[in-house]
């Protein structure tokens, strides 16, 4: 073990870690949008929408992320969209995340007592109002811990986008260790960085959860 190897590589690794973080954040944010839409589709009462949502969730939770990633990577050019690998990577992460997020929301929605929608209906609320004013705000509160957890999962999963050449933390570690022949030190350092980010996120999740329980 040579500690100096790590010191030399650290600036590059930390820079790459920032890329990993923002890609994951973007993935989770877009995943939120997809997740809410899929969730609403599945709860809409329309059988076609429900089924389409169900297939979507089943596919993106059942197929390994690496395959999803390559699928999108090779599919986009075929339908005439020529995008950089980064876009393909973020799309894959968002689509996968959306499937998980929609399930988180579905669980949280089921935790909102049914009587509340009935009460709102009885008061003459439109179903759009019920969704935006009653169901989703509560579902969001219930789901915060699961969403932080989802961000942690996505952060780890984002290491896979290294295969399409996105220079995030894992890819950068590969590049560096290929040039200095010190994979042990470099991957250890990368592991510690991932661990630090995830531990910070987990801590943040606990704090938010505690906050929500109080208020």
């Amino acid at each position: 073990m040579k500690f100096s190897v790590i010191v030399d590589a650290l600036p590059h690794l930390l820079g790459a870690a920032v890329t990993t973080i923002w890609i994951s954040l973007l993935g989770v944010l877009l995943g939120q949008v997809i997740g809410v839409l899929v969730c609403v589709a599945r709860q809409s009462g329309n059988r076609g929408l429900d089924m389409a949502g169900g297939v979507y969730v089943s596919f993106f939770r059942g197929v390994p992320l690496l395959i999803q990633l390559l699928l999108i990577y090779y599919m986009l050019p075929l339908i005439g969209i020529d995008v950089p690998p980064l876009v393909a990577a973020i799309s894959a992460l968002s689509l996968a995340s959306g499937a998980y997020v929609s399930e988180i929301y579905r669980g949280s929605l089921n935790a909102v007592p049914h009587g509340q929608s009935e009460a709102a209906l009885a008061l003459g609320f439109s179903s759009a109002t019920i969704w935006t004013r009653i169901l989703l705000p509560q579902a969001f509160r219930f789901s915060v811990p699961a969403l932080v957890n989802e961000l942690i999962l996505l952060l780890k999963a984002s290491s896979l986008i290294s295969v399409v050449g996105v220079a995030e933390l894992t890819r950068t570690s590969q590049t560096i260790s290929a040039s200095n022949f010190r994979p042990l030190e470099i991957y250890l350092a990368a592991g510690v960085i991932y661990l630090a980010i995830n531990s910070a996120l987990a801590l943040f999740g606990t704090l938010v959860e505690r906050r929500l329980q109080q208020g």
């Binding site: 073990m1 942690i152 780890k156 999963a157 984002s158 290491s159 896979l160 290294s162 894992t170 570690s173 590969q174 260790s177 010190r182 994979p183 042990l184 030190e185 991957y187 250890l188 990368a190 592991g191 991932y194 661990l195 995830n198 531990s199 987990a202």
Partner: peptide, 23 residues
């Protein structure tokens, strides 16, 4: 347990496969 659960599987694999020979 925390280390394994807090790091990507791919990094663990690289450590074992590429980093292993160093030790």
């Amino acid at each position: 347990i925390e280390v394994i659960r807090g790091t990507p599987f791919l990094i663990q694999l690289f450590l074992l496969y590429s980093g292993g020979p160093a030790i």
